[in-house]
Write a protein that binds this DNA or RNA. Structure first.
Lengths: 212, 212
DNA sequence: AAGTGTGAATCCATTCACAGCT
DNA sequence: AGCTGTGAATGGATTCACACTT
């Protein structure tokens, strides 16, 4: 599939390229140029070409890239089309929003079990997803084949719960808490820290204001 | 404040350092070493030192960094303590979760107005935040001094709404939709794409599995 | 003319290695 | 001995420039 090793930064751009390719397909454009893609992402065309060279999808000189071809290649590399069994741990307001977040379902992330310590909701279903007690984690992970976990508990118990989730056999954790979680090296972890993102945004904004 | 220009990557780490410093303060540790911080973030100590050199907070050789000093310096650079007037645009399930997301409030992001096109909720209050019709955007932004916007509308109208938000005078947009938004250069934009984050997570996971 | 593929150059980030302070 | 500060070295990612194809 891919020619060499994929630079980390390119990977993230690939998802954006993929979205643009879907959009091109929707409006029935069959060719797309590196300049088109570059403009859409606000980057240089040369970078787009470098990125796309990691794929087997060759562009045609003087013409551009075939949308159909590009879509297929990106889908393979990005693992699009695959589905994943996802657990949600921590059924607060954010957790409930994640449970019914449609883009997850569309993208193959199927939340099939939720966990919480609150006995008032354990045993119920929310948006069609059964809620288990957090103590049942290991057994449900095994019986349902859960692979990933969305962690949306309170910050103060996040590390403890993450460790338990890892011990239960989950392979990847998406951490929604504003906490630096530490796990063993063979569990994948990503942190979606919304506060941090806001901080980066306002940091840029403050610099922007100084320019006037 | 800062010595030179702050490398983009360092900025993100600064937020993690800040969290560790708060934690050190909580457990009443008054000195912290680059090795301590490095371990907490899973990076090299030399990098921590390079990062912290952008601050005026000098560590003491043979000793480490003063937690109090470091906290104060990081707070200045990161703009912690400042408060922001935030609009929420798109009051769906995710929007409601964001409205009551406590870490935002604690970090100085005060959501003081929400906007939606659904007349059933316009005029009501949700979690103490008044909901306005999307057409009132420009006037409410002006009257309330709204500076930032959390964009949590449906993907298909995201670009259109973002353009309107920008025109209404908002300076920074946090985009929660899985769409590549394009804005003029002087509006700050960040995208919190949860699907993309999941994709990166599973990309890594797939590579991890191949190693066994 | 338009647009890719790619070596070379540049820019930025990380790591090393060690002098210097406490 | 322990730990920072920092020049030098390395490594990675981006941009340039231009040959080459349609």
């Amino acid at each position: 599939m891919s020619k060499g090793i994929l630079p980390g930064r390119s990977l993230k751009r690939f998802f954006s390229y993929y979205r643009e390719v879907l959009e091109a397909e929707r409006v029935e454009v069959s060719l797309i140029s590196s300049a088109n893609l570059a403009k859409a992402l606000g980057i240089k065309a040369s970078q787009v070409r470098k990125d796309l060279n990691y794929l087997n999808c060759f562009g045609r000189r003087g013409v551009g890239y075939s949308v159909e071809n590009l879509k297929a290649e990106l889908a393979v590399v990005l693992g699009i089309g695959q589905t994943w069994n996802v657990a949600l741990v921590g059924v607060g307001k954010l957790g409930r929003a994640l449970l019914s977040y449609h883009p997850f379902r569309v993208s193959g992330y199927l939340i099939t079990a939720a966990f919480d310590a609150d006995v008032a909701i354990v045993g119920t279903e929310i948006d069609g997803v059964p809620v288990y007690h957090i103590d049942e984690l290991a057994s449900v992970v095994a019986s349902k084949g859960l692979e990933l976990c969305l962690l949306s508990v309170q910050a103060d118990i996040a590390q403890k719960v993450a460790t338990a989730v890892e011990a239960a056999g989950i392979e990847g954790i998406m951490n929604f808490t504003p906490v630096n979680i530490r796990l063993s090296d063979d569990t994948c972890l990503r942190t979606m820290d919304m506060v941090e993102q806001m901080n980066v945004l306002t940091f840029r904004l403050r610099k922007n204001r100084l320019k006037r």
